[in-house]
Amino acid sequence: MNALDVTGLSFHYGRKEALQSVSFSVMPGEFCALLGPNGAGKSTLFALLTRLFVSRQGRIAVMGQDLQTSPRAALACMGVVFQQMTLDLDLSVARNLAYFGALHGLSRRESVLRAAEVLERLDMAERAGEKTRALNGGHRRRLEIARALMHRPRLLLLDEPTVGLDARARAAITAHVHALARDDGIAVLWATHLVDEVAPDDTVLILHKGHILQHGRAADIAPQNRLPAHFMALTEDTAA
């Protein structure tokens, strides 16, 4: 079973087309990089995948659960890291995780155990008692990823999670999420406009002006690290 199935998804802001008949799937354990320049439709796609928006054209299914007809079951399988930070800076790391755990139905005991696990997984175990405000940008992002893993999702959605981070923090977060896909079998949809975050074995989905231009393994689409040049050429040609 695919972790995510998107079929014939379209969306318009008034008369402006944001997405046009978008279809793709992400399998368990797959790291799928959603590449697109600013304004390509990535954030709209994320809003639809997380049910912040609803489209009447097309279908979204998470682990076989239709997001329109069974939203709670579908959302329960999904962990989300939004582009903007959504942490409560006045709460401690542990309390941020406990809050999220409770929203996802975890008991206090389960929350404590899961928080310890996910913080360990993200190399943040020693930060549990700290105020979130005291964390740097990279650690805040890691905490958001840890939080998204609290309820053991089968699909992890990340909307430009490395924006505003330095090169070291970006590399660390990218490596952590690749490990989650590889070791834990979590399906990952990683939206970005930074092509260097894509590994050769990742699946790439190039979105531009609401259309999918290419979908396939990064190494097959553009061999020998030529993906950045290929992406630039593809999106520039289409824009012209």
């Binding site: 997380t50 049910r51 939203p71 709670r72 999904m78 989300v80 930070m85 959504t86 929203l103």
Partner: peptide, 18 residues
């Protein structure tokens, strides 16, 4: 606008309850 409401609205519970 800042995003934390999104976190609440994507919880697997009915929106009216949240």
């Amino acid at each position: 606008e800042m995003g934390s409401m999104r976190l609440l609205l994507t919880a697997p519970l009915p929106r009216w309850w949240l």
